[in-house]
Design a protein around this nucleic acid. Sequence first.
DNA 1: CGATTTTGACCTGCGC
DNA 2: GCGCAGGTCAAAATCG
Length: 389
Amino acid sequence: MSDYDGNFMDDLSPLSSPNIRGLIAMLDQNNNDRNPISETFPETNLSTNPQSEQRSGCLRESLAARRGFDIPPLEIGSVSPFANSFRNPILVPSPILVISPGFRSPLLQSPNIFSNSSSQIIPPCPIPNGAPPEMVQISSAGDQTMIIPNNNHPQGVVVETDVMNHISLENGCEEDDMDREYNQEKDKVEDHNVVVEPSSRKKRKMVVSNMMGVTRQNGTDMVIIQVESEEDHPDDGFRWRKYGRKVVTGNANPRSYYRCTYTGCKVTKHVERSAASMKLVVATYDGIHEHAPPPERIKKSGTKNQSGSSMSQDPSNQTLGLGRPHYSSSASQLFPSALAPQMDMTQFHFYGLSKLPSLPVKKNHERKIDHVIPDGTEVFKVIWEQLFG
DNA sequence: CGATTTTGACCTGCGC
DNA sequence: GCGCAGGTCAAAATCG
């Protein structure tokens, strides 16, 4: 039996899993004079399109001024060297949070930090004063949001954003007042840089956002994660059986469909290479594992993991880190087990990571990944510092 | 021989 | 009603 099987349930004591309401109350106490994130996050998006930046920027500032806060000016150069490649006004640049091989972050594994969020009304989280736009937003349940200031990360999380392109097309997804206000005004702006037609019910379900987000949608258990991986099916700790493969429109790379092989588990996922970059694998998880990951199979030396179904003894292997955690991972080194926040990432969406309009794929145009998080735990560390630091 | 992948056919929902 | 697209089924093939 693995460490995980033996210990992880013991780590899930109520005290070790402060609920989000409590977390945010703590934040409020520490950040009384700061703007709530729910009002702030539209400004976290950056434009890389000079024209739309000009127009949307004015709108953004106008809206922000009405809300009583300032928006720091954007320096394009501080965002990403390939930000300028997104200039097509009808395309939404994909958010990029590049997670390197070996990613098995507690951020993606702890099951409870935002648990039961759909039924709660959560006060908005504050963010630091003067927070720059280069930040990773973590949001949940529409009214739960965390933002990770990008520049707090020692190596800089790669986040490409485009000004206020947060368009929720979720059927029944509630916009907050500012979003609604913004979208109404945005519609008046010609040549705004997003055109997304909700042409079907499935498409309506998607949320287009150029920011990296972690959000749980009411009534859904879908998570979309994009990672850099050479493997077509990166290890996520669970065992999967492939049951289908399909080429979908907008992506020449086939999508593979997997089902969790655990008896009774109905979690499915599909995995495809990003149309924008062959380096990126987009995994969409549907459902929540109600079981622990199976013990890791012992990989015989010299044999390939034939199934591609995610079992490996090699800690350097690619992981997506969904489901419940192996606390033998670096997570347990970052936090004492009793403090390690619990969050099941199958309860969140990473908006805009896969359901975005296709990016232009240019031959000989290689999108450079200039910053890669060496270990996903760093992402969580940043969140943790924001919450309790 | 069991587990897993492959792949064409089929099903379902949606827009027109 | 038809066509399209996404998702699933299931028999055959493959692998260890």
